[in-house]
C-alpha cells in the first residue's frame, strides 16, 4: 500500500469519523443545554469524576453496541473495506453476523454494569440493592459467556489479538493499580475506591484492545 493510500485510509477511517463525532457530540450537548433546557452542569454535580467517566464509558459502549448491531444487518457496510471490490459471500456473512451481535451483547452488558455502578453509590443500604447486585451478576455472567463463545468461534487472529491485549493490559493495569494504591495508602490524599478499579481495568482493556485490533488488521 502506498503512503498516500495509507494516509487516505487513516483519514477516512479515523480522523473524519472523529471530527464528525466531535461536532455531533458538541451539537447534542448544546441542544440539550440551550433548546431542551437541561442544566447539564447541575445534573453533573454530586457525581465524582470516576462516576462521570464511568457513565461516559457506559454511553460509549452502548453506541459501539448499536454500531455493531447495525453493521450486522448491512452486507454493504461490512464489505466496505475489502480490497479490489471484493464482497462478502453468504457463508462469510452467516459467520460474521452472529459474532457482531455477540460482541454487541457483550458491550451492552459492560454498559449496564458501568451505568449501575456509577449511578448508584454513596450512602446505600446493601439489602436495598440486592436487585442491582443480581443484575450486575447476570451481566458479568453474560459477558463471560459471550467472550467464551467468541473465543471458540473465532480463528487464530482473534485469539492472538486477545492474548496480546490481555498481556499488555495486565502490565498496564498492574502498574496503575499498584501506584494508585501506594499513593492512597501512604496518605497522598488520593482516594481509591472499587469504581476506580473497575474503570481503570475496563478503560485500559478497551483502549489496548482497540489499538492491538487496528495494529493487527482486525478492526
Amino acid at each position: 500500500m502506498s503512503t498516500e493510500n495509507t494516509k487516505k485510509s487513516w483519514l477516512r477511517r479515523w480522523l473524519i469519523p472523529m471530527i464528525i463525532g466531535a461536532i455531533f457530540g458538541y451539537s447534542a450537548i448544546w441542544l440539550l443545554d440551550n433548546v431542551v433546557g437541561v442544566d447539564i452542569k447541575a445534573a453533573m454535580q454530586g457525581y465524582s469524576t470516576a462516576q462521570l467517566l464511568a457513565m461516559l464509558m457506559s454511553v460509549l459502549f452502548v453506541l459501539i453496541a448499536v454500531i455493531l448491531l447495525a453493521l450486522s444487518f448491512s452486507a454493504k457496510a461490512l464489505s466496505a473495506n475489502l480490497p479490489d471490490g471484493e464482497e462478502l459471500d453468504e457463508a462469510e456473512l452467516k459467520e460474521m453476523t452472529p459474532m457482531l451481535r455477540l460482541s454487541a451483547l457483550a458491550m451492552s452488558a459492560y454498559a449496564v454494569i458501568l451505568w449501575l455502578l456509577s449511578t448508584i453509590s454513596g450512602d446505600v443500604n446493601g439489602s436495598s440493592h440486592l436487585g442491582h447486585l443480581l443484575i450486575i451478576a447476570v451481566m458479568v455472567a453474560v459477558q463471560l459467556g459471550v467472550n467464551i463463545l467468541l473465543w471458540i468461534r473465532h480463528d487464530e487472529l482473534y485469539k492472538a489479538i486477545m492474548r496480546e491485549t490481555a498481556g499488555i493490559s495486565y502490565i498496564l493495569i498492574e502498574m496503575i493499580i499498584i501506584l494508585w494504591a501506594a499513593a492512597s495508602i501512604f496518605g497522598f490524599g488520593i482516594s481509591f475506591n472499587p469504581l476506580d478499579v473497575v474503570l481503570v481495568m475496563l478503560s485500559v482493556y478497551f483502549v489496548v484492545g482497540t489499538v492491538v485490533s487496528v495494529r493487527r488488521g482486525f478492526a
Partner: peptide, 19 residues
C-alpha cells in the same frame, strides 16, 4: 482467488488472510 476464497480453503477468516 479472492481473499474470501483462500480463507475458505484454509478454514480461517478473511480478516486473517488480509492481516
Amino acid at each position: 482467488w479472492s481473499q474470501g476464497e483462500l480463507a475458505r480453503r484454509l478454514g480461517v477468516s478473511r480478516q486473517t488472510i488480509n492481516a
